[in-house]
Amino acid sequence: MPPVARPLSPHLQVYRWQIQMVTSILHRASGIVLSVGAFVLAGMLLALASGQEAWDCARGLLAAWPGILVMVGFTWALCYHWLNGIRHLVQDAGWGFSIPAFVRSSWVSVIGSVVLTAIICAVAICCGGVA
């Protein structure tokens, strides 16, 4: 709690949900998820550098079903953060600020991330994953 009780602006519960706020919240959430993923990647590299035994153990964790689900989650978070990151960079450059453009680009981020994730998972399965 803040040390001084100041009046608060209205928060999530009073707003009607709209796609623009969903993309904003998801960007932050996926960013936090990806920070966790960064540490998983660091752990995998350390295991690979440590030797065969550590690598087999780490690889076994990710190759089991819970691990695969987590990897799919990280993949979606990366796809979403990547796509919506492009959207934010374009907006930083001053483009796409009309409300229709804002709504349209929001949907591109959300739907595009699911499509990208599906493509990556399909390629991964074709390469002999989930085994």
Partner: peptide, 17 residues
């Protein structure tokens, strides 16, 4: 500290490999 440590450790791992 966590980000710096993880960055150092993972970069060192890649260099070792």
């Amino acid at each position: 500290f966590a980000c710096a440590l993880a960055a150092l450790a993972s970069v060192l791992a890649v260099i070792r490999i």
